[in-house]
Computed example of a mutant assay.
Amino acid sequence: MTTLYLFGTAALPVLEIAETVRAAQARGWDVCLGLTPSAAAWLEPQLPELEALTGHPVRSEYKMPGAPDVWPPADVILVAPATFNTINEWSLGLTGKFVVGVVAEAIGKDIPTVAMPCVNSAYVQHPQFHWSVDALRSMGVTVLYGEGGFEPNPPGERRPYPWGLALDAVGAIASPAP
């Protein structure tokens, strides 16, 4: 079975992560869920349900040195929703957060990785965001941003997050193994 690491950050669509896990599982993937510390705090009451759903511990922190890894190796990674902060930390190699550390290392391990931001139109006016998107793309990360991907909305306005688009992109990179 193909193992998908699904990494969510503290943007409102992370509240829909259980439905996304189910959709990924319906596509034949074994899903391991990782969250930034803030996203984990938002979802704290649901963590036991999410662990039961995935069959794996939900992780938001690095493991202790020498501790065994509790997840199978990733075949593909999806970072969604990816906040302004996460996109910038990742492109700059700032790995203080578990999910950022894993995806930064995934570049060097050649693990196919898809990212779909969730940022508003005010954040994307900051030049670092575009530099970060360009940098991640140059590193081989599929970034679903702009036409055909996530398109920012005005601050305070919420539109449906295109989860299906993100899962389709993962499917195009790594088909589920029997």
Score class of each variant (00 low, 15 high):
N88V: 03
E89I: 00
S91Y: 08
S91L: 07
L92S: 15
G93F: 12
G93N: 14
G93Y: 09
G93D: 12
T95M: 08
G96M: 05
K97F: 07
F98M: 15
V100Q: 03
G101Q: 07
V102H: 04
V102K: 05
A106R: 01
A106W: 00
A106G: 14
G108Q: 10
K109L: 15
D110C: 14
I111F: 11
I111D: 09
P112H: 05
P112N: 09
V114A: 02
A115N: 06
M116L: 09
M116D: 04
P117A: 07
P117S: 09
C118H: 07
C118L: 07
C118K: 04
C118M: 13
C118R: 06
V119C: 03
N120G: 11
N120T: 08
N120K: 11
S121V: 12
V124G: 00
V124R: 03
Q125A: 12
H126D: 04
P127T: 10
Q128K: 04
F129D: 00
F129G: 01
H130L: 10
H130Y: 07
W131R: 13
W131H: 10
S132A: 15
A135I: 00
A135R: 12
L136C: 03
L136Q: 02
L136V: 01
S138Y: 04
M139Q: 14
V141E: 02
V141P: 01
T142Y: 05
V143K: 00
V143R: 01
L144Q: 04
G146N: 13
G149S: 13
G149Y: 05
F150Y: 15
E151N: 14
N153F: 13
P154T: 05
P154R: 09
P154C: 06
P155W: 08
G156F: 09
E157M: 14
P160D: 13
P160W: 10
W163H: 11
G164K: 12
L165Q: 11
L165E: 05
A166H: 02
L167Y: 01
L167P: 02
D168M: 11
A169N: 05
A169G: 08
V170P: 03
V170T: 09
